[in-house]
Structures are given as C-alpha cells and as structure tokens.
Design a protein around this nucleic acid. Structure first.
Length: 763
DNA sequence: TAGGATCAGTTGTAT
DNA sequence: ACAACTGATCCTAGT
C-alpha cells in the first residue's frame, strides 16, 4: 500500500507557514515611495473601500503602469525610429548569429554562456543542446552516489553480485568521478552557468504552454463532435418517434456517430506535438532534465511526456530499451530513467526519502486494481534491476490527489533516487511481485512533495485565518467573491488606498461609447453549433472558448467576439465567458519591493478568464497632461490585430475583421491607441497586477456590446496553469522607446521583474 | 462514486 | 509487421 504523506513532521509544515512563498526577485522602481507610504496611517473603513476623494498615494503604485504613449511625439518619431530600430536589430541579430556559430565550439566546452535574450539565439541554443544530448547519456548532471551501499539483494530472493558486475561497478565509479569533475567545472563558471538553466526552464514553460494550446484545441474539437453527436441522437430519436407513429422501422445510427465519450485531448495533443517535432528532449536520458528543478509540478502525465521527462503517459516505469544499446555502449540495457509513484500498486511502500516500489506487470488494469498475476523480471522490472547494478539514478515523480489541478491530480518531481536493491516476494494478493528499494540521493533540495501538498492546503478557509489582513474586501461587496488585502510588509500594516473600486468600465464625459449593438445570434439558451451561431462565425466559425472548466479561451486572438445584448442565448452561454465576473478567489498582497500584487487562492487553468481591466474609459490624449498617473491601459486592440507597435500578431478571422479595420481606417485611426482605460482613481483588481517579462497572464481584447475595436474590453486570461498563491502578472506590452517625456525625449524605465528573459527595460 | 472502455507510443518478438 | 503492455482519463451507470 502506498503510505500517506503524513510522515513529514508537523514542524516542516509550520516552518512553511512562517515563511510565506518567496517573492520573486523584483526590485522596486519607486523605492522612495515606500518610505512615504509608511508614514501614512489609513484606517480601512467598513467595506474597505477608500473615499473617492482620497489622494492616490504612491504606495498603491507597484511600478509604473502601462502608460499612454505620448501620442503626438510618437507619431512623428515612430515611423523613423522603428525603421532604424528594425535595421539595427536585424544587424545585431545577424552579428549575433555569426558570433554564435563561431563560438559554439568554445562554449560547448564550458557548457554555458548562452544569452537568453534573443529568440534567434535561443533557437540556436536549443538545437545545439539536442545535438549534444543525442550522443551523451548521463553526463551533464550531478549524480553523487555513495559507495558501500550498492550491494544487490537484501530481500527474500536476492541475487548475488558477480565478477562481471564488480567490473561494472568500477566502471560506474569512473563515471561518477567524471560527473563530479564536470560539476566542478560548472561551479567554476559561476554565474554564467545559471543562465542556461533559466533558458531551459523557459523552454519547458513554453513547451507546456504549447501543449495546453493543443490540448484546448482538441477539447474544442471533441466538444464540437460530441455536441453534434448529441444533436444527431436527438434528431434520430425524434425521427424514430415520428416513424413509429407511421409504423415504419428505423435503424439506430451507427455507434461511431452516437458515441458521446470524448477521445482523450491530452493524448491527441502529445501526438500532435510529436508530429510537429515540438517535444522537448525527445531523446531519453539518465539524470535530471535541465529546466525542471526538484519540486516542479506537473498537472498531468501528458505534460511530463511533452517535456521529455517521462516519455509515456501511461507507464509507471520509463526506461531506455535495447534500441539505445546501438548508440550508447556504456550501459547494459534496458535501464530505467524515471518512475511515477502514484499509489496504484497495493504493494508500494512510500516513506518519502525511502521508497519500496513495486515493479510492473500482473496488475488488474480495470476493476479493483489489484494484482492478478505473477510479475516477471522483464521490461521495466529488468530496467530497474539494471539500475541497481550500474548505479543509474532515476527521476522520481509522485502523484497526489489535489483539487488545485484541472485533472484533480498533481505530479511533483521529487528528485533523483538510486535503486539500492531489489527482490521478489509474494505480494498482498499472493502473487509474485518485484520490489525495488529506492533511496533519495543526498545533496538535493529538501523534499518538496509534502510541502506542496500542504502549501495548497494552506490557503485560508475563512477571513479569520488570513494573516496580515488589512482589508476584508477591497471591492466593498461589488464582486460576488470578496477580495481581501494583506500586508505583512509594512509596519504598521496599511491597506491599499486612493482609489474607488468599480466592477465595470465607466465612461469619461467627453467619450461616447458606440451604442449601436450588433445584431445578435439566434441561438437559444446556450450557443452550441458554431456553424450556425453568428457570433461563432465572427470568430472564424468556432467559439473562442471551450465549455470545459466553466469556459477557457483556446488561444490568444486578435480580438474575441462574444455574444451580446441582442443575442438569443442566455447568461450561461459559453460565448459569454468573460462576462461572468470573477471566478477565482483573489487576494491583494503587499510585497517588499514591488508594492501591491495579486495572487489567487485557487488553481487557475490555462485559458481561464481572470479579470477585466476596468477604470474610466478616456481619450488617450487627455491623459497626456497627467504625467504621474501610472494606471493607464491603452486599448490596443487595433494595434494587436495589425501587429504593430510591438504587439505580437495573433490569429484572427481575417474576413470579418478586415471589414472592421476598413471602418476604423476610414475614421483615420493611426498606429497609436486613441482610447485608454484610466484606473488611477477608479478601477478593479486588475490595477494591482504587476508587470513581468515572463508573465502568467495575457491580455485579450473582447467585443460584445458593440463592434468598435477602439473601445474593446480588456480582459486578462491565464497563459499557464497557475498554482494557488503564485503571483499573477502580465506583460505591460510597451514597445521600447515608445514613451517620451514632456520634452519629447525618450523615457526609459528599467524593469526589475527578475524573469530570466527580462528585457531589463519596461520601456 | 465506482466501474470499465478507451487511448497510443514503446518495446520486444515473430515473420 | 504485429501484439503486448501500461494506468490515466473520462464517460456512464448506479446509489
């Protein structure tokens, strides 16, 4: 039986709660603000919403917000400087590429020194890395094995060590020494060595992001198919009823069409990524995988596959088979490289640092999930046995039941373990099972499995449990779920002040929101069929959302057309996903260096809507006068669609949008946003979300009550699966040199978000 | 909530 | 070329 994780001392849990999640290494831009803030004494009244006329205190400003570009000056400058910049960038990239290709040999020797900054470079690095891996097994990772504990056997039917095996052990020792040597070299390189690790972790992040995109795409495909199947069944039933009346016999539709069960979108996503060569680390390898640290959380088995951590979504033991013997002659194959401990075997025994793992086979896959046959020393079992004899460490992942995951399960990488010994015995059900004693290698980060388990459970259940609470609900009851504010940084702790909470957009006096609501779809209750729903057609004949998990955006789009006031569907329609208000329990918390920040107590799956950016909808040029307002968000829907002003180009329904673009062009829209949302004095939770160069949210413009791109609603969606208590961030999206000061000079703002790929400048 | 069908890549073996 | 192997996932049926 798999032991529970309660074997961890309570102390370690307490320790955790005493030390809140480390705050990312972000330097505050406005350091001066903090001291002034400390002097302000503000009592948070009743509902916690400050008076509207309270002066916006600098304390509320984490770092400078997405400020309106100084429009006129930019207009003049953009065209000229953009061209110049592009030329410069192209020249720099070319030079870098050349330098890179020349330096490859040298850098490979050092095994480091890769700049994470430029995409072009990153690609070069990725490729080189793979080439490296295809010829090296077990190198480049720190593997420290203790001697004297490598005897084979120890259990019932232990095998005895042979002369040949002794030789192998010697070989193994030699390998170990080499690894240590390599490690020393790495240490010498010092800081430079840390860089590629970060780059790799970004690659891991991006690969998982890509997986999520494919995953949601296939979820959508399946939802469509199942929806159609359901409609077909309904129609078939109706037809049968009719024909019964007439006395005719109608055959049932073939099973294929009526089947309602969805094919597994996760597996389809894996297949797709294999087909596209998008799998990270496609070669199996011994030891740790760079970019995946101990404690890394996976949200499904499929995630492990796409980053090359464990190459099968189903097998417990991942091993390198005989085919690897052709390329690598330093091992006797098969050898195991990774295992998943998920408690599926009745004979498992798990004490965290010390595990008795049951081999594979003889397991009743359906029903009671117990042993029904004897296990044999073959496949994964043989691979684990070979690990004992050849001192090959294996990666260990543990599965946990957890609500904070879309699959209800979390897999945590617990580090490298060595297979100490193995034996065969009669298991609980009376069949022969192979057992492997695993011991965690020393010198690794403290085991995090239990911490993660309890971190998730540490989310407060009531306001009484919240530490450092300074405000019960900054929304003053406007949102369905209250948003508390906590402050464990300031002394005395102060709540966020200087703004009025508003759930929805307010419009400035001199701005007229388009009132001509577009014609709506004629669907009833919920929009289902994307081939007939007009709103779906506007999005390119597909709904932008999947129904799963209450609505998730499949991918970032130029603009999303949602159902609006003239649509026949109700509020529960999937194509109103962004209109349903806050879905997750959010918290505003004070950080030491970044001012206020936002995090969620709930798990947020990728593509889920987090919040809208609200405030006062204003003319961008009116904001020019307000030089110190740091809460201005330009509505850059048009720019995003056109892919200008530093915006990434996204997929769009070209046909429908071309029409809208023509309209806006007629109205003389330039490359600079005309309108913006000013959350300086009035806004919602979004005004507290900080910038990060590698964020976990992204901005998505949404149209529902009208089709004017200049007034699109601004929504923030989850870009990744976001675990509870992780700070929420998005990219403020400045083009470098796009902000000018009052004298028309280019203004520069350093970025201290601390991400590996930080651009070092906010603008 | 429990049971069971399904899913698809890897591996080893048979042809 | 093919079958065996594997346990996560999700739907369905039952309580």
């Amino acid at each position: 039986m798999t032991s529970s994780y309660t074997s961890i001392p309570i102390k370690s849990i307490l320790h955790l709660s005493e030390n809140p999640r480390p705050i990312s290494m972000v330097e505050q831009v406005n350091n001066a603000e903090k001291s002034s803030n400390c002097k302000i004494k503000i009592k948070c009244s009743g509902n916690g919403v400050p008076k509207p006329n309270e002066k916006s205190s600098a304390a509320d400003s984490p770092i400078q917000r997405r400020t309106s570009a100084r429009i006129k000056a930019v207009k003049e400058k953009t065209a000229a400087s953009e061209l110049q910049l592009r030329r410069k960038a192209a020249a720099a990239a070319a030079a870098a590429a050349e330098e890179e290709s020349l330096a490859v040999g040298e850098k490979e020797k050092r095994g480091s020194g890769v700049s994470p900054a430029k995409v072009g470079k990153k690609r070069c690095y990725k490729k080189r890395k793979r080439d490296e891996e295809s010829v090296v097994v077990g190198e480049g990772d720190v593997v420290v094995l203790e001697r004297g504990n490598e005897s084979v056997g120890g259990g019932g039917e232990a095998e005895v060590i042979s002369e040949q095996q002794k030789k192998k052990l010697a070989k193994c020792e030699a390998r170990r020494l080499k690894l240590l040597e390599d490690n020393d070299e790495k240490m010498d390189v010092g800081n430079a060595a840390a860089k590629p690790e970060k780059t790799d972790s970004l690659q891991v992040k991006e690969t998982i992001r890509l997986f999520n995109k494919h995953y949601l795409h296939f979820v959508q495909e399946e939802e469509k198919r199942c929806g159609k199947a359901q409609a077909d069944r309904k129609a078939a039933r109706a037809a049968r009823k009719q024909s019964k009346k007439k006395g005719k016999i109608v055959k049932d539709a073939p099973l294929e069409e009526t089947k309602n069960s969805a094919k597994r979108p996760d597996l389809k996503a894996i297949s797709k990524m294999m087909e596209n060569n998008e799998i990270l680390n496609p070669e199996k390898r011994v030891g740790s995988i760079s970019g995946i640290e101990v404690g890394h959380q996976f949200y499904s088995r499929a995630e492990m596959c796409v980053v090359g951590f464990h190459s099968h979504w189903l097998n417990g033991i991942d091993y390198m088979g005989q085919s690897y013997a052709k390329v690598h002659n330093n091992y006797e194959f098969p050898i195991a490289v990774a295992i998943v401990i998920s408690g599926m075997y009745e004979d498992d025994l798990d004490n965290a640092e010390d595990v008795v793992y049951t081999g594979q086979g003889g397991h009743n896959l359906t029903g009671d999930k117990r042993q029904i046959r004897d296990q044999k020393l073959e496949r994964g079992n043989l691979a684990l046995k070979n690990c004992v004899e050849q001192c090959v460490p294996i990666r260990v992942v543990r599965g946990h039941e957890s609500r904070s995951s879309y699959t209800g399960k979390i897999y945590t990488y617990d580090g490298l373990y060595k297979v100490v010994n193995y034996w065969a015995e009669k298991g609980i059900s009376g069949f022969t099972v192979y057992k492997f004693r695993l011991r965690r290698l020393e010198g690794q980060p403290v085991l995090t499995t239990n911490q993660v388990y309890f971190t998730c459970g540490r989310v407060p259940q009531s306001s009484a449990e919240i530490r450092g609470l300074v405000c019960d609900d900054i929304t003053g009851g406007q949102e369905d779920t209250p948003i508390p504010a906590t402050n464990l940084v300031d002394d005395p702790p102060v709540p966020p002040t200087g703004f009025t909470y508003c759930k929805s957009i307010k419009v400035a006096k001199n701005v007229k929101l388009p009132m001509d609501a577009p014609t709506g779809c004629k669907c009833k209750d919920k929009c289902v069929d994307p081939t007939t729903c007009e709103c779906a057609l506007r999005n390119g004949s597909d709904f932008p959302y999947v129904s799963k998990d209450g609505g998730r955006l499949v991918e970032a789009k130029g603009v999303v057309f949602e159902c609006g006031p003239n649509c026949g569907c109700g509020p529960g329609c999937v194509n109103r996903t962004s209109q349903k208000g806050l879905r997750y329990r959010l918290e505003v918390f004070r950080t030491a260096k970044k001012g206020w920040a936002v995090r969620s107590w709930d798990f947020i799956p990728s593509g889920a809507p987090v919040c809208e950016y609200t405030g006062i909808l204003s003319r961008a040029e009116d904001m020019e006068r307000l030089s110190e307002n740091n809460y201005i968000f330009d509505i850059d829907c048009l720019q995003t669609i056109k892919g200008i002003g530093g915006r990434e180009r996204r997929s769009t329904n070209a046909a429908f949008i071309a029409n809208l673009l023509d309209k806006s062009d007629e109205q003389g829209s330039e490359s600079v946003p005309e309108y913006c949302i000013d959350a300086g004095s009035t806004g919602n939770i979004a005004r507290f979300i900080n910038h990060c160069c590698e964020p976990n949210l992204f901005v998505q413009c949404v149209l529902s009550t009208h089709h004017d791109l200049k007034f699109a609603r601004v929504m923030l969606f989850a870009a990744d699966n976001i675990p509870p208590l992780q700070e929420l961030t998005y990219d403020y999206g400045y083009a470098l040199d796009s902000v000018l000061d009052s004298d028309g000079k280019v203004k520069q703002m350093p970025c201290y978000c601390g991400a590996a790929g930080c651009r070092k400048r906010l603008f």
